[in-house]
Nucleic acid binder design. Sequence first.
RNA 1: CGGGGUAUAGCGCAGCCUGGUAGCGCAUCUGCUUUGGGAGCAGAGGGUCGUAGGUUCGAAUCCUGCUACCCCGACCA
Length: 565
Amino acid sequence: MRASQFHLSTTRETPSDAEIASHQLMLRGGYIRRLGSGLYSWMPIGIRVLRKIEAIVREEMNKAGALEVLMPSVQPSDLWEESGRWGKFGPELLRLTDRHNREFCLGPTHEEVITDIARRDIKSYKQLPLNFYQIQTKFRDETRPRFGVMRSREFIMKDAYSFNIDEASLQHSFDAMHKAYCAIFDRMGLNYRAVEADSGSIGGAQSREFHVLADSGEDAVVYATHGDYAANIEKAAAVCNTTRAQATKEMQRVDTPGVHTIDDLAKHLQVDASLCLKTLLVVGSEEPVVALVLRGDHQLNEIKVEHLPEVAEPLTMADAEQIKAAANCDAGSIGPVGLNIPVIADADAACMSDFICGANSNDQHLTGVNWERDVPQPIVRDIRNVVEGDANPTGEGTLKIVRGIEVGHIFQLGDKYSQAMNATVLDENGKPTMLMMGCYGIGVTRVAAAAIEQNNDDKGIIWPMSIAPFEVVICPVNMVKSDAVKAAAETLYQELSDAGVDVLFDDRPLRPGAMFTDMELIGIPHRFVISDKLLANNEVEYRARADSESSVIAYDQIMSKLVSH
RNA sequence: CGGGGUAUAGCGCAGCCUGGUAGCGCAUCUGCUUUGGGAGCAGAGGGUCGUAGGUUCGAAUCCUGCUACCCCGACCA
């Protein structure tokens, strides 16, 4: 491609509404343009990146035996009524009405449509297993779109759905997708982790998220220093390897006027927050309220709590009235001693001795409290977020926490949708049996942003080769003045094009500085500079975008230079 | 949905407090010079000041409503 025939539209200034690197650089590099909140147009250079990402995804999906389909983005409401999600989904589902007053939605996902296809088309176990995928535009009316295409409302997603006769076959399809996803993200040159994840309200046996590691990531990803344990913090198991120490102090009541938080308490008594006990009251499933108990320096994991049978779903904190009724005090002074409701404690909280907690009396706390002696042994459950340094739940080592951008999610749906929508096939005995399903997504547009988050510097983007809009750029110096430079650049352009290299020839009449700055901003991985001075020795200058130094190489070394990278 | 903020040329901003014919930098266009790290000079074009109403002789500026967008939080199969 000749730059003069292309549309490059770069800006020096950073748009004021862009916060993170990928958003700023995509705008400055002319990759995307904003149309409305969470709505972006992809410009010519941007779509080249998307197409490369899609091509890799297609190849690996096809290789894994998945079959491409394309489903409508507008979906009739009756399918969603069938699955029960028309009522459940909430305002994130953008609903529309057509001229006949029939209701539709813009598809945020396609389980309903694909299940409808499957129940019409798949009759026999002999047709299984099957895996259908599509690359489609989705719409989710996010409460707060942000970070450009990272969390936009309209986005492109690859979604695949496997259909299996039983769980063993489903596990097979799941494993194949896991492998395919690793191949995809490997080929994109991304630093990522596959982690255990909560499967959300959708349920299912297994769930893995693929996270690109980047400081700006919205998720916290946990991994073990030894072994291969890795999980989303929503899911990561908190274990306690210590045992409870002997009680050494007597329980005492102390006045703590105006103390309502663990921070206040720790400061007031001049102790570490880890010696305090935090008690939270939430609405129970059978009891009106239940108490959740954590070490003062730990944080409640709402997702884990919501899964507890004792706790009402969705998770609801007790209101002031309920707290008064259960603990006879206000929030900020609650403690387990004397509470007449179920007490669920985190393992670490249950290991504490001589601890400090609320006295269930305003402006008073108890010190030197001990389980069993002063308060009955609580129910022990995992209800907290792990913290850095926690023990690895699967063995040796400790846990580390990094930020991640979720770019893929695979999980086993089981028969949730086939059950709801009556999708059955005949098994070997001629008996109808529910289809087992798996669901596998990759955020195509988000991958582009994630790749930039992970690969950029103060000059701009540094694309991994496999998803760069162009692989190589030719920068001729002062081509308008030099026929020799022009001829050499044209020849090199021709040779690289003929060799199948995705090359951009910057034939714009720009000064070298402006040209280099542009190309560094848009992030082309390889650059060859041609000038009269170099040509005299039959040389060109080469520089990889990721390198800080350039080198002068012989003209006939160009191809081998590209191959070696 | 709660809290905060912004809206003036394609982008970044000033002007508003204290009302009086809309300005700067970058970008764009023309010409000349320049050409290895965002060139210089000369000239030019481009704005219903988000929108509707009000106050006033006069509103970008003061007042009210509305809308859009951004940030923090809640939310996110």
